[in-house]
């Protein structure tokens, strides 16, 4: 009660711009409730249930489909890791589009969580001379190799440190997630991420009704709103249900490997033990759980 009161008086004092924006958006009771919703991590189990029911109803109304929004927590004893075989990748960008569809990324304006960089063989990994907009008839192109980059799921992520409101954090299974209902859209995390892995909803995200994926996770691929940041979550909705990320499944040359770093028999451990791996920008001490290796 006490808290509620102070919140109400805070509402009075809120800056003119916000207040008028509130008036503009037509302040119904439901929206007021939404306005006061708390950070996901401070919600009780019951509050989470309520919130998820509300979200499912809201999405149904919007997309005319039944949604499932999971809030499945991390499974004990898992720490997810990823490895990408640079020598196999042919730069076809199928992972990019599989990711867009699986994770309900906005089609207009376009958001891609995976960026595939075309590099000169002669220069090695050299971002300054790379190109994301390559567009030949067929890939791979002579003299080039390809380096897909997505969230590197850093062990010491810069993006979560700088967030002024704790809207983004690392889960116990190592996945860095964003609470879209809490993010204020300041984009500090985008300035801090050394891999360009965070993307902003500059406008209201548009996804055709028939292409929407209804199997979602609260911290992952549920539909987002205008003005919040989003990023790769290793397909949290899939991997916590025992499936592979979409990009791993789609890759036509099997360049993408995924698994539990804590499981000695996993494929990812096999690669770490038997191949020589590297991480991007190791000098920044971000300690990614996303590795690159040369399989052949």
């Amino acid at each position: 009660m006490e808290k509620n009161k102070s919140r109400r008086s805070f509402l009075k004092n809120i800056s003119l711009a916000s207040a008028s924006a509130l008036a503009l958006s037509g302040c119904t009771l439901k929206e007021l409730e939404k306005f006061f919703q708390k950070n996901f991590r401070t919600l009780s189990e019951e509050e989470k249930k309520e919130l998820i029911a509300e979200l499912e109803a809201e999405y149904k109304e919007k997309y005319q489909k039944d949604f499932h929004v999971s809030d499945k927590a991390a499974i004990d004893g898992t720490l997810f890791g990823y490895a990408l075989d640079v020598s196999r990748c042919i730069g076809c960008r199928r992972c990019v589009y599989a990711c867009v569809e699986e994770n309900n990324q906005s089609r207009e304006p376009q958001i891609h969580w995976i960026q595939v960089l075309q590099m000169d063989k002669e220069r090695g990994i050299d971002f300054a001379h790379s190109d994301v907009h390559y567009d030949p008839e067929t890939v791979p192109e002579e003299g080039h190799f390809y380096l897909p980059v997505q969230c590197q799921q850093c062990r010491t992520p810069q993006c979560t440190t700088v967030c002024p409101v704790k809207a983004t954090w690392q889960e116990p299974d190592g996945i860095v997630v964003v609470d879209y209902n809490w993010c204020i859209g300041c984009r500090y995390c985008m300035a801090a991420c050394p891999y360009g892995a965070r993307h902003f909803n500059w406008a209201k995200p548009e996804i055709p009704e028939e292409e929407i994926n209804t199997e979602t996770h609260y911290l992952g691929n549920r539909p987002r709103m205008k003005g919040v940041v989003e990023k790769c979550t290793f397909c949290i909705q899939r991997v916590r249900a025992g499936k592979y990320p979409s990009c791993v499944e789609i890759c036509p040359v099997g360049a993408r490997k995924f698994g539990n770093l804590l499981d000695p028999d996993s494929e990812i451990r096999y690669i770490l033990d038997n191949k020589r791996v590297l991480v991007l920008k190791e000098e920044l001490n971000t300690q990614p759980k996303f590795y690159y290796f040369f399989g052949v």
Binding site: S18, V162, V165, C186
Partner: peptide, 26 residues
């Protein structure tokens, strides 16, 4: 005007919101 969700500005306050102090320079 720079933030995507000006209405959520209060998330930055202590007690009411979850201010990331002392980690975030913002």
């Amino acid at each position: 005007v720079d933030i995507g969700n000006p209405l959520r500005f209060w998330h930055m306050l202590p007690v009411l919101g979850t201010m990331n102090f002392p980690y975030s320079m913002l």
